[in-house]
Structure formats: C-alpha cells, structure tokens
Design a binder for these strands. Sequence first.
RNA 1: GGAGAGUUGUCCGAGUGGUUGAAGGAGCACGCCUGGAAAGUGUGUAUACCCCAAAAGGGUAUCGAGGGUUCGAAUCCCUCACUCUCCGCCA
Length: 425
Amino acid sequence: MLSLLVIREQTEEIISRLERKNFKDARAIILQVLEMDNSRKAFQKQNDDNLSQQNVLANKIGDLFKAGNKDEAAGAKAEVATLKAAAEEIKTKLTQTETDIYALMVTIPNAPSMAVPIGKTPEENEVVSTNVKELPVMAEGSVPHWELTTKYDIIDFELGNKIAGAGFPVYKGKGARLQRALINFFLDKATAAGYTEIQPPILINSDSGFGTGNLPDKEGQMYHCQIDDLFLIPTAEVPVTNIYRDVILKESDLPQKLTAYTPCFRREAGSYGKDVRGLNRLHQFDKVEIVQIQHPNKSYETLETMRDYVIGLLTELELPYRVLKLCGGDMSFSSALTYDLEVYSAAQQRWLEVSSVSNFESFQANRMKCRFKDADGKTKLVHTLNGSALALPRIVAALLENNQTPTGINLPKVLHKYTGFETIE
RNA sequence: GGAGAGUUGUCCGAGUGGUUGAAGGAGCACGCCUGGAAAGUGUGUAUACCCCAAAAGGGUAUCGAGGGUUCGAAUCCCUCACUCUCCGCCA
C-alpha cells in the first residue's frame, strides 16, 4: 500500500498519479485519509499522555510501598483507576481510527508513474518496440497449437481433465522435454545475468499473500488449502519477494537479484471461451521469474534493464514480439509501471502475453516492511520489481505455431542443446 | 501423531513482578593509540508512531504472536505459532 508519509508530503502528486489509473474519487479519498490520520494523531497523543501519567504513578506507588506509605499508595491507585477509565474510551477511538485508515488504505491502488500512458482499455496501451515489421502470415495448412499438440502427441489436455480438470494439461515425451529445456534455458540465462537461483515454497501463508498484494481481496484467484490455511502460489513473485519481508538491508546490499522456477496455480474464475483454448490460459503452468530489490533512485533504470533482458530471451527464441507500456486502465493494482511483452501467434492471429515486467516502487515494500539504511543511517523503503522470464505455455504455443512445417516443428537453435533434439515430428 | 524442552536486541547470552529498551560478551561504526597493522582503549550501535517549524530534547509501544491478572510484567496465567530432543510413521 501507499505510505502515509508520502501521501502527506506529496499529496497533490499522488492524487494526480492515482487519477492516471482512473482511480475513482482519488482526491476525495486521499483527503479523507489525511483527515483521518490527523485525528489518529490527536487520539494517539491523548493515549500516550494518559499512559505516561499511569507510568509515573506506577513508579510512585512502587516507591511508596518501599517506604511503607500504604495510605498514599492507595490514593495513587485510585488516581490510576480514574486514568484507566478515561484511557478506555480514548483507546477505543484510536484503535477504531487506525482500523478505518487501514481499511481505506488497502483499497487504494499503487500510484502509477507519470510515465504511464493515460487510457482505460488495453487498446490504449503504448507499443514501445517490436521486431515485427509486418504481421506474419501463416503458410497454408497452418494450424493452432492445440491441433499440433495432438498431432505430435506432446501435450494431452483430455488426460489432464481426467486427472485434475480443465486447465491442467499433461506434457508427454518431447512435450515434457521441451518444458524442462525451456526452464533450464531461462534459469541459465538469468544466472548468467547475475540473478541468484532460488527454489521457494510453492505454498504460502497469508502474511506472504498480503506482502505482495495478493491478499486481501484476491483470494478468489488463488487455490487455498483450507486445513492448513495455505495458498498455492499464483507466481514465484510471492514467495521470492517475501524473502525480504521484515528485513532491513544495508544500502550496499542493493540490488538483490533473484530468479526462480516454479509451477504457478491460478483459479482463473470466470475465464472461458476461445481465449482460454489450449495453452492460452491454464490453472497450472510453469514460469521462471526474476525479482529485484532495488534502491528507489535506481528502480526505473532497473525496470528498463529487466525489460531488455526479457526482450533478449525472445530474440534468442526467434519469436516475433512487441513491447507494450500499459496504460493506467490496464495496469495491476500494485504496479507503478508495467511493460507487457507479447509474442505473435500467426495461427491464432493474435498477440499472446508472455511476460509482464513491473516496478512496484515502495507499494509492496511498505506492506512487507522491507527497508534499507541509507548513507545517512535513515531507514527507507526499498523498491521491488519483478518480471516473467518467461512464462512457458504461450511461449510453447508460439514456438509450435510459428515454427510448424508440414513435416514437423523446428525448434530454435538455442534450445537444441537443452532439448537434445531439433524438431518435433 | 505421542512425550518433553525452548523462543530476549545484529549474534551469543543474563534476567521469575518495580527507572530493564533490557546486565555481560561478541560483532559493527567512529575516534585515540601505532610508521602501518594487531593488541589495547574511548564513544556509539533497534524499530514504529507521536509532541516539537527544525535540530536538540521528550512521550508511547515492542523481550515469538494475541489475550488476561496487577498500581506495575521480559518475568505470573491462558490461547496460538514456531524451533529443538526422544518415540512413532514416512518420500
């Protein structure tokens, strides 16, 4: 969530940034937060003063008892009782105000960077770069990936239905091998780029879910193991970023760069139709994630680096891609600036999102209490960033569709040493 | 799953009701000492919120988490979480 300090100090800026995300009544809500915070301060002052007096009396009573002065001690006890009675009401007001502020704060999305394009729908996202001059047209006889997977018997959706349900495909033979190859390729590349590989838990508790902004309100997106009150991760971002929950780093520790491969689980409640056909949208999928914890002054240049890193992956995979800077209306709740990377599927004649790279600024850090000590010894919130590098299913879909020939699918050269084969036939 | 022990600051570790935010030690930072270093020595070394224009200074809270007893709790009671040991089960 946004930090109250920032809201207080940069009120106008925050309001105009929130308006960029089409956040309704941004001004009214921010001003309300400030007003509530002012009453909170007043209540806290009263409460602290009251407690302070109680402490003074408690010490005095101790001394009186030692001196054997029981009568005076009894008088002081009566005074404390009076203070306590008064404290109860103040304390209630304070707690209530804090609860109200918190309830309001968690509903406020992150304020977008001023670089975010204004807009409401995905059509208003800004294309910032692409390696596609003209949209490729598929050769005659080309088919979408869900036909190819059956033709070559590499992914079995029906079998997955039997075992778990729709959206849980079974990868077989070269299909399974291709998954493993991509995971290794992505992890090797990330390691070479300076990221430390992590294998995190793929179940998380609610504190972790809160830290990255997946809870509250987005429970519906995650699978929940009720007996143990644990959630299956929707992305490695959650366990990996939460490594830094309640941590105070040294300035020299920044940046922290981590990568992790995990399966990801998403309920995708309400999704249906041809957009979810085949590999386009799954309940379980594989993804390699990159995460950075960075100094606030450097987070945006880091975001560019991470975006370019992902572009490098797509280039090596020889896929047609484009990079979008998301407009205010299409951004996630927690993000301050997001680049989406999409690959073109000529067989489906549509762009498929394969990566989302975001700077959360201090939004997650504030929830997680991840801070660093700056040169002056002051404790400040870090900035967190992450990106998919990459999500497998749509990459696989694009690889299959774009590289199909009548006799088989030719895999890009970089993958050969990982797969151990060059074509799927 | 059964039985027992434990959870204190960056770390180790004292502390069973009264200036204990917390002894002592280590580490770290800065200074002195030194030709330089080690040793020695001095000082400092949590987080959040609040008061104060700011600094200085002050207040409140925090000894796993939450609740209770008490004028007063790291210290007593209850609940929960986690860790360790032994037994059982098991990839």
